[in-house]
Design a protein around this nucleic acid. Structure first.
Length: 271
DNA sequence: ACATCTACCTGGAGGC
DNA sequence: TGCCTCCAGGTAGATG
């Protein structure tokens, strides 16, 4: 499923095909995503030029002069660039058609994604306004993590997955980063020392950056904008490896539930 | 303010 | 083969 590196990879894949081109049509085949796709989109966008694209957390932002198209891939969404008319799949819910013939097509089998429109400053949109810092920007550093975790009793894994604390870290990368930092997922956030906060920030950065460099990806149903599968899933230390041997020490990886989600950790390497 | 839980949705896997 | 149940997941919104 698309985590931050996949969204970033998707952005890089689609941006060159969209930027500077004019929308000739919008096709909504199924508006029932997480929120309904606005039926006014074709009228709003036809004849308008795409200025630039941007990522904020896991949102893709397509900027126009008069507003911003906000896209979210949910957990099964993907965007593809088509250069010829192609029959839509059952789960191809939305097309943005440009006047050079290029089509950006959204496929989302589980329909947890979103396509929304916002006029004015997009960072003030209700979905974006409360978001924490980007994990790859300087604002997210050891001191920041130390400060926001003081007097927090929440498990550290739940905290780093909380968008108010830091954006873009889903279940897979949370598990992987905690393994690499040597921190148990259930450790109370407020008990993390300053050096361990610094370490955790460093490995979150490294894990995300490496994945972006690899071209993104995690789940089998993620397809990037060229239609090729990503391959980060071959590099997991703990995610999805319950009862298998730790790649570092050989101990069996433990699987537990935290906040209704699976967590994986090595009982020897993580404390 | 914080912690915890629920809902949304579909496809794939495993059991029988 | 088919039917059933469980699981995966982001995140807003409700509840405690």
């Amino acid at each position: 499923m698309p985590e931050l590196p996949e969204v970033e990879t998707t952005l890089r894949g689609i941006a060159p095909h969209l930027t500077g081109h004019v929308v000739s049509n919008i096709i909504i085949r199924n508006a029932q995503l997480r929120w309904p796709i606005p039926q006014s989109l074709p009228v709003l966008l036809r004849g308008h030029r795409v200025r630039n694209l941007q990522r904020r957390a896991k949102y893709l932002l397509v900027h126009f002069d008069h507003g911003t198209l906000i896209l979210h891939l949910g957990m099964s969404g993907s965007l593809r660039i088509l250069t010829a008319v192609t029959a839509p799949d059952k789960h191809d819910h939305f097309d943005l058609v440009l006047n050079n013939g290029v089509i950006m097509r959204l496929r989302d089998p589980r329909r947890f994604g979103a396509v929304l429109w916002h006029e004015g400053e997009v960072s003030e949109h209700p979905l974006l306004v409360k978001l924490g810092p980007e994990p790859l920007q300087e604002e997210f550093n050891g001191e920041y993590l130390y400060r926001i975790t003081r007097s927090r009793n929440t498990a550290i894994k739940l905290l780093i997955m909380d968008n108010h604390a830091v954006v873009g870290i889903g279940n897979i990368y949370a598990n992987e980063a905690l393994f690499r930092a040597g921190i148990r997922p259930q450790l109370s956030a407020g008990k993390l020392s300053r050096p361990r906060c610094a370490k955790l920030v460093a490995v979150i950065r490294a894990t995300l950056s490496e994945s972006i460099a690899l071209g993104g990806s995690s789940l089998r149903d993620y397809v990037d904008s060229d239609g090729k599968q990503g391959y980060f899933q071959q590099h997991y230390w703990v995610y999805g490896r319950g009862n298998e041997a730790c790649k570092k020490c050989g101990a069996p990886i433990r699987q537990i539930k935290q906040g209704q989600r699976s967590s994986f950790y090595c009982p020897i390497c993580q404390n």
